[in-house]
Amino acid sequence: MKSLRKHWQFYLLIIPAVLYFIIFKYIPMLGSIIAFKDYNVVQGIWGSPWVGLKYFKLFFDNPAAWDLIKNTLFISFYGIVACFPLPIILALALNEIRQGRFKKFVQIVTYAPYFISTVVLVSMIIVLTSPRLGIFNHMLEAIGLPSINFMGDPGLFSSIYVWSDVWQFTGYSAVIYLAALSGIDTSLYEAAKIDGASRLQKIIHIDLPGIMPAITIILILTVGNIMGVGFEKIFLMQNPLNLETSEVLSTYVYKMGLLNANYSFAGAIGLFNSVVNLILLVMANIFAKRISGNSLW
């Protein structure tokens, strides 16, 4: 109590931020009950009648629902498998070479794509893979192969999505591992040197165990976001030709909810999405705690 009175100014300072979180984070959370109601504009979220699981049933009875879930999970798992190991390998490789210009250069270059906006990145993909103009098709032509309409091929969508992610984020993700590597006790390396360990042995027996906690934490966070595959990028990459593999839950929520004004239906799918994410995150955390002793909480 004494501290309350003494530090009243602290409470004054946090008012705007607390209001912000209540209005823009917690009210929408409460607002997700819209999924169990028949929302209409006149009665608003609170006044609209309850309909129970109607919209969830509507969604899951539709065979297209399973295609959406399948697409979402496939792109996510593909993304994890492709995007997860490379930053670790890059960090380990950078850690092997001496501090100097080359190391700095590699870091600056690999880190740069992180700053490119999603719109620009997708524009780059479209321009570079364009059947008429794109460098990829010029390359194919140069070696005598027929050109490919990359963005119009549903079979290629996930690969383009995932590998452009690898291109954009590998350097950025490596930073955390590099930091973890720099925190490893140097006496371990000296001991290994005296024992005649090779560079590869040092990586396997010192570096990897040293960054294991960082790897676990990042894996948990990644798993916790499986259902939330990068909506913004997928949405921009979609076109009528690739829609059968590129439609995921979040893009469907946007189209149903905001374009077709089916607020309750879209709200139900969105809620399903958030709940699955939360469950996955909690499970990944429990699992990691059991196995490695590292966890988020």
Binding site: F24, I27, P28, G31, I45, S250, G270, N273
Partner: peptide
């Protein structure tokens, strides 16, 4: 905890839009 929870669970696009 109040702010960290918002990282774990969000109301989603539709309720945010309505706000």
């Amino acid at each position: 905890i109040f702010i960290l929870f918002t990282m774990l669970f969000s109301g989603g696009l539709i309720p945010e839009y309505l706000v």
